[in-house]
Design a protein around this nucleic acid. Structure first.
Lengths: 156, 156
DNA sequence: ACACGATAGACAACCTGGTTCACTATCTAG
DNA sequence: CTAGATAGTGAACCAGGTTGTCTATCGTGT
């Protein structure tokens, strides 16, 4: 009976939901000793991973140029989240690794995200939430990391 | 039996789903004579609405400063999507209105979004999609337009 | 009637995060 | 051992956001 919602509501709600989660994450991260971290940084650190990476590689992972990746790394380095060391096996390369502070931020982010998911589960019911996740998984690419988050909005 | 997914998957999937929809929208818009439109522009035009608005008001709606709104309007004006006219009743104000070209873009966007939603419904089932929309509605603020999309990623 | 506060718009300087182009240093294969 | 590919960096530029300042106009209270 009820008419179908206008198509434009869906993307908006998806974005709003994303935003709500990210905003709550960062509010909580701020309280837990990471006030300077920005939404992007968490994704970038997640993309760097436990073993480290290089600027070129990070750029490839995130879908941005190596220069953009380099700038972001610089910012993260200034904030103390990552450190760069020369690769002894190839002195052109600089390995970017998370510092303990960076790993702390990542661990806290994971915990907070789990907590937020639990709150959603409490609100919607675990089964509904699982259905939601399953549906989203069905409609999105498998590769979680090709977010192209940095700058995708200005994409040509 | 199956363990709960890690909390960080949810926001990522939400964002990815949003991105998928927006990317498909713009691919299709490009094919339909609007190659220069950017993701943000659609939201801004939607926010301008059929009756027009002013820079200050648009800024309020979108949650950005009037200067930022002004810049965006300028871009949209340059692209031919909006036009500005002095308000005869208050010569300080400039009314921003969609041009026929802008209205065309908006109408096409709405149609494409409806089509995309229909594709999701075909894939997931109308009832599952409705449940998804209902759940998202429950977890997001009522005000659809306070997206703060422009620049929220760089938010302090 | 008019002065004063509030409002609309515009301009400048600056920030972030992206882009392209150009360059150096180093590695690797023929 | 040279030629080409690759890693990192720097510079110039762009979009879109911010704050601060300025002018023009409106509207209200005395």
């Amino acid at each position: 009976m009820s008419s179908t919602p206008p198509g434009f509501e869906l993307p908006l709600r998806l974005f709003l939901a994303f935003r709500v989660l990210i905003d709550e994450l960062h509010a909580e991260l701020g309280r837990q000793g990471h006030p300077d971290i920005r939404p992007m940084h968490g994704f970038v650190m997640q993309a760097i991973g436990p073993d480290g990476t290089t600027a070129v590689d990070l750029g490839r992972t995130l879908g941005v140029t190596k220069q953009a990746a380099g700038k972001t790394i610089e910012t993260l380095e200034r904030l103390g989240y990552v450190e760069r060391t020369r690769d002894p096996a190839d002195t052109r390369r600089k390995i970017v690794r998370l510092t303990p502070y960076g790993r702390d931020a990542l661990a806290r982010s994971a915990a907070i995200f789990d907590d937020l998911r639990a709150r959603w589960a409490a609100e919607l019911g675990e089964d509904r939430l699982r259905a939601l996740e399953a549906d989203l998984r069905k409609m999105t690419p498998a590769d979680l990391w090709r977010l192209d988050i940095p700058g995708w909005f200005g994409a040509t």
